[in-house]
């Protein structure tokens, strides 16, 4: 069995965060406790092994998702999936230098996130995970 993919959820809407955590865990991934702010995510990333971050752009607190991602990727090579309520050119322009895996516009359907992760880390991973 291959190693589980470790996912950090940064999402300030509790029910959605919980749904994502449960769903992705069911698919066999390891999902840390969701965090609600960029600052917490930054601190957490420094001390944990993370394979992919699912990062909401519109976050509570003084740092938005793009700022958070900029700071994290400055020192660490962690792929990002941005989630956002709205997608527009301004967001794309700001976030494109970070080369995220994808932008997912809410409402988020957990399966679509899982599909993205499967593609990023190879299908076998996801399939084997599904069987665990």
């Amino acid at each position: 069995m291959q190693e589980k993919i470790r996912i950090l959820l940064v999402e300030d809407e509790a029910i959605t965060a919980l749904l994502l955590k449960r769903s992705l865990e069911l698919k066999g991934h390891e999902v840390y406790e969701p965090l609600a702010t960029g600052r917490k995510a930054l601190k957490f990333a420094e001390t944990h092994q993370i394979d992919v971050i699912l990062l909401d752009i519109n976050l509570a607190g003084d740092m938005d998702g793009i700022e958070t991602a900029t700071k994290i990727t400055a020192t660490m090579d962690i792929p990002i999936i941005f989630t956002t309520g709205y997608m527009d050119d301004a967001i794309k322009e700001r976030a494109s230098v970070l080369q995220p895996i994808a932008y997912v516009v809410k409402p988020i359907i957990p399966d679509s996130i899982n599909d993205l992760i499967s593609k990023q880390f190879g299908n076998e991973n996801s399939i084997s995970a599904e069987h665990t």
Binding site: T16, L26, G85, K106, P107
Partner: peptide
């Protein structure tokens, strides 16, 4: 509009969570 959309996300999440 934003709140309405957010609430719809919450409703979707609740439904799916429950259905799991």
């Amino acid at each position: 509009y934003h709140r309405t959309k957010n609430n719809m996300q919450v409703i979707i999440s609740m439904l799916m969570l429950q259905a799991m």
